[in-house]
């Protein structure tokens, strides 16, 4: 452990940690755009600058390792002035139509602009335009909202492993695009949407059927219902409808999702969902009936087949898609109530 001082308070921290990690451990919040604990720190956005009290040097907290007896000021007047200045530069070419921005209420740039009391008009210039359009059916890219933090490119190359995004050009022309601006799919995009989930502003956002603002939704953590990885996710709910999915940090998914987990939730509200029991009548067609009628008929038929042919004439197919509780209860139903071990599920498929 080494001794450092954060805002005058002595702290004992493991060597090798960065200033940002030391501050996090000490419960001190430092703003970040380009930082994510899963990615190699890049120090490109500079918003995490802190001041070394001895030299008055400003250093990015995310890429600077702590050193013995380091004295760090996280919110000194110089630091605050610098962060404000950085935000004002970021906003100089930013489309500030926050009133109708998707991410209003859930945008780091908006949060920090408020926190640091920025002057939006200070350096106001031309808004950046989208040269690369990232055409695909799942999400859109609005370069006028991009702050060039590069997290989209880094999550794609470092975690997802598809290397679709690059930060191209320099200065005002800086933009997010595929290498040489080739098509998304040609660049290897698999539509996992991890870049969309990590974007701290309104640059990358899902194309969606139901619009919602951050304050209109509830987020419920659950387990993805597709493959066996068991990713943790938040279902975003507005007016009793699932309107979006956001990754959660589960032990098996580390904050990642795939195209199905992120985007394939439309089935939940789909108009073709079954809502009433159906019974095949003499005309050979399925007709809506009440729950009582349907359940009684199943019970009667089950009893009749059991009486006539024995319990082993009935086969139960449970499901690898439903819960443990449901599998257990169906198992009990087949064995204890019907009296057969003719029970299986789709494990072999």
């Amino acid at each position: 452990m080494i001794n450092i001082y954060i805002n005058g308070q002595q702290r004992s921290i493991l060597p090798g940690k960065t200033i940002l990690e030391a501050c996090k451990e000490s419960g001190i919040h430092i703003p970040t755009f380009c930082y994510d604990e899963r990615l190699k720190p890049e120090g490109s956005c500079r918003i995490c600058v802190v001041e070394l009290e001895d030299s008055h040097k400003l250093l990015p907290a995310c890429t600077t390792e702590i050193a013995p007896e380091m004295r760090i000021a996280t919110h000194s007047p110089l630091v605050m002035r610098m962060r404000k200045h950085l935000l004002e530069i970021m906003l100089s070419n930013h489309d500030i139509s926050c009133l109708k921005c998707e991410r209003a209420g859930n945008c780091l740039l908006q949060d920090y602009a408020y926190e640091y009391d920025v002057d939006i008009e200070k350096y106001r210039g031309r808004t950046r335009e989208s040269a690369y359009l990232a055409e695909n059916k799942f999400f859109e890219l609005d370069q006028s909202k991009c702050i060039s933090c590069g997290k989209c490119a880094r999550i794609c190359s470092q975690l997802q492993g598809n290397n679709v995004w690059a930060i191209s050009n320099r200065g005002f022309e800086t933009e997010v695009s595929t290498p040489f601006g080739i098509d998304m799919e040609e660049a290897g995009c698999v539509h996992c949407g991890n870049c969309v989930s990590i974007c701290p502003v309104g640059a990358l956002k899902p194309k969606k059927e139901h619009k919602f603002r951050a304050w209109e939704i509830n987020e419920i953590q659950t387990t993805c219902s597709y493959c066996g990885v068991g990713c943790q996710m938040y279902l975003q709910v507005k007016d009793d409808k699932v309107v979006g999915v956001k990754p959660a940090y589960g032990k098996s998914n580390e904050g990642l999702l795939c195209v199905k987990g992120k985007f394939a939730f439309d089935f939940i509200n789909h108009p073709q969902r079954l809502t009433t029991p159906l019974l095949r009548l003499a005309d050979g067609e399925l007709h809506s009936v009440s729950w009582e009628e349907a359940l009684q008929l199943i019970a009667d038929k089950t009893q009749e087949i059991k009486n006539t042919y024995g319990a082993d004439a009935i086969m139960g197919l449970s499901s690898a898609r439903v819960t443990n509780e449901e599998n257990y209860l169906f198992m009990k139903y087949m064995r204890a109530v019907i009296g057969t071990n003719n029970l299986d599920h789709c494990a072999r498929l």
């Binding site: 066996g228 690898a320 029970l343 299986d344 599920h345």
Partner: peptide, 15 residues
């Protein structure tokens, strides 16, 4: 393969 194929097996949904 499936979200709960492990669980369905654990729960004895097998013959």
């Amino acid at each position: 393969g499936q979200n709960n194929v492990q669980g369905a097996c654990d729960m004895g949904a097998l013959p």
